[in-house]
Design a binder for these strands. Structure first.
Lengths: 139, 139
DNA sequence: CCGGATCCGTTTCGATACTG
DNA sequence: CAGTATCGAAACGGATCCGG
């Protein structure tokens, strides 16, 4: 139980490490595509509604790889193709994304289907476990 | 329970609304200061370790106010002083910040005290309720 | 002192065109 | 398909100034 007489100080709650990695407009969108969209190639990411520029995408993929959040793999069936895949560190971002999506659905005008949001909130832990299962089985 | 046969599609999980508001390096640091640090004035925010520039801080405070995440108030005791305070929409960001802090503590090198992180994870809901209580009583 | 606003040199971003 | 190269626009940072 949090001690209300000695609440956490700012210095006890370092956000900088997270923000240095994904404190920008694009990085988490790529993670979302991998986590929810079943999209895993450069071309797939470009198809997102938000229309990321090619150079920005390439740079963000490099940074995500350097941070150990995504891994690059040659497609098993088509050796020319490159697939990106979340690492364990990457799938661990699921709670962050879920909370951001839920917050926006509550306070902003988003196109999130109420059923999905309901599932994310009421069955939050199961929902996240499901994402992780799907990630694990998708290998 | 999430349906693994029909997982949420990317388009069902809009992150853009959130990222448009706080998808940058500075905005959430101000929110953190208000939420965890007991810091609520312009001068307080400047004192943070991350050394935000004065013009950047002023612009972010305006944006946060325009988004309905913070409110401006004259200090009751010292009429010259201005205090910022989270709105309900602002305190609702607590789960997002907590997940970001927990993720970074797990995967990056941060200075977060293990006791606080343990509390954030094991007693997550109580921890967030405590933050909200403190916010409510601090009015 | 406090809460900014303004100016300015530097860095980063991002749209488009182009390439192996 | 998966990126680079280019180049103008925007953001950043640091310093300074200013009204209350």
């Amino acid at each position: 139980m949090p001690n209300l007489k000695l609440p956490p100080r700012r210095s006890d709650c370092p956000l900088n490490a997270s923000l240095e990695i994904f404190g920008d407009r694009w990085t988490l969108l790529v993670v979302r595509d991998l986590m929810f969209g079943g999209r895993c190639s450069y071309r797939d990411f470009l198809k997102a509604d938000e229309k990321i520029a090619t150079n920005i995408l390439a740079e963000r993929l490099h940074r995500l790889e350097a941070s150990g959040i995504v891994e690059k793999h040659r497609d098993v069936e088509d050796g020319r193709k490159i697939n990106y895949r979340l690492t364990e560190k990457g799938i661990d971002l699921a709670p962050v994304l879920v909370e951001m999506i839920v917050w926006a659905a509550r306070h902003e005008d988003t196109a999130a289907p109420p059923a999905v949001i309901h599932d994310m909130t009421v069955n939050r832990d199961t929902f996240i476990a499901g994402l992780r299962d799907r990630w694990k089985s998708g290998r």
